Computed example of a mutant assay.
Amino acid sequence: METFTSWRTWDEARPELTGLPAADLAVVERAVIAARRWHGDQLRPTGVPYLEHLLEALEVLVRGAGVTSPDLLAAVVLHDVVEDTAATARDVEDEFGPVVAELVDWVTKPPAAGEGRQAKRAAKSAYLRRLGEAPREAKVVKLADRVSNVQRLHQMPPDFQRRYYAETITYVLPLAAAEPWFENWYREWRAEYAHLL
C-alpha cells in the first residue's frame, strides 16, 4: 500500500507542483497560506502539525490520483478550515470563490444537534451518508482526506482503529467506486487492515 507522507511542509510540496501552470500553482499556494493562518498551531490527534495532514491530502491528489484542477487542490488544502477553525464558508468563498467554498462545505461535518458521544456519532453518520449525494469533486476531496487519515491507522488506539476501519468500509469505500485510482488504493488498504474486522 502506497503512503503519502513526504510533503510535511510547503517547501517540500511546492517543487512537486511545478508542472502546474503558474496561475494554478499560485492558487494552491494561497490556499496553503490561508490554511496555515486559520489552523495556526493546531495539532492532529497524532501530535503532528495540522498542515501536515492537509499536505498529505494534497499529495494524495497530485502524486496518487493525478489531479491538476486548482479548485480541487485548493479545496483539499482547505477542507477542514470551516469545521476546525474560526473560518466560515463565507471566508473561504471571499478568498477562493464559490466553487472551492462549495467543495469545502460538502466535506464539512456539521456540529452535533445534542450533547454526548451518541449525538456526535449520529451527526457524523448523517454527514457521511450525505456525502453519497455530493458532486464528484467533493467526493474526491473526501477520499483524499480519508487516505491521509487511514494510511497510518495503526498509530491510533486499538478501539479507534476498529471503529474507524468499519466507518471507512461502510461510508467511504462506496465513494471510491467511481474513481479507479482511489478504488484500487482503498482495496489495498482494506486488505492491509483486514485484521480489524
Rank of each mutant, 00 (worst) to 15 (best):
D71N: 14
V76D: 00
S148C: 07
K120F: 05
Q151F: 13
G40C: 14
A113T: 08
E16T: 07
Y165V: 06
P135A: 09
E183W: 08
A113R: 12
S125M: 04
A191T: 14
V140T: 13
Q151L: 14
L197A: 15
Q161V: 08
V92F: 10
D41Y: 05
E56G: 15
L73Y: 12
A177D: 02
D84K: 15
Q42S: 05
D91A: 15
G116K: 03
G40R: 11
G97L: 09
D145W: 08
H39R: 15
A138I: 04
L153V: 12
H195K: 02
T18K: 05
H154C: 06
D159R: 07
T9A: 13
L196W: 03
D41E: 13
E183A: 15
Y186E: 05
A23D: 14
R30H: 10
E102F: 02
T3I: 15
A113F: 03
A194Y: 00
K139I: 07
P110Q: 07
A23F: 08
A194K: 01
A112Y: 04
A191N: 14
G116C: 06
V104E: 04
H195L: 04
V99Y: 00
Q151N: 12
E188S: 15
A194P: 01
H154L: 09
E167M: 14
S148R: 02
G40P: 10
L143N: 07
G116F: 04
Y164S: 05
L20C: 11
E167G: 11
R8T: 11
L55G: 05
L58T: 10
F4K: 08
D105P: 04
G132P: 02
V100H: 12
V28R: 13
Q155C: 11
R187K: 05
E93V: 09
A35C: 13
A74R: 05
A119V: 11
A89V: 15
E93Y: 04
D11L: 13
V92P: 06
P111W: 00
W106F: 11
A101G: 03
V48G: 03
R187G: 06
L103Y: 05
V62D: 05
E137A: 14
A65K: 03
W189Y: 01
D145S: 11
A75M: 08
A112Q: 01
H53F: 07
S148V: 04
E56C: 13
P21H: 14
T5G: 00
R136N: 02
P174L: 08
R30K: 14
V104G: 04
P45A: 06
D91I: 15
L17T: 10
Q161R: 06
K109H: 00
L173Y: 00
A89W: 14
E2C: 06
G66Y: 11
E83C: 14
E59S: 15
V140F: 10
P135L: 09
R14Y: 12
W10L: 10
K139G: 09
T3S: 15
L131R: 03
L72M: 15
D159T: 11
T88V: 07
P45S: 06
L55A: 08
F96G: 08
P158I: 04
R121C: 00
R63H: 02
P111H: 01
S6C: 06
L128E: 03
E179S: 02
V140Y: 07
S69L: 05
E192R: 14
L175Q: 06
P70E: 07
F160N: 06
E192L: 12
A74W: 06
E167P: 05
D84I: 12
E12V: 13
L25H: 04
Q155T: 13
H79F: 13
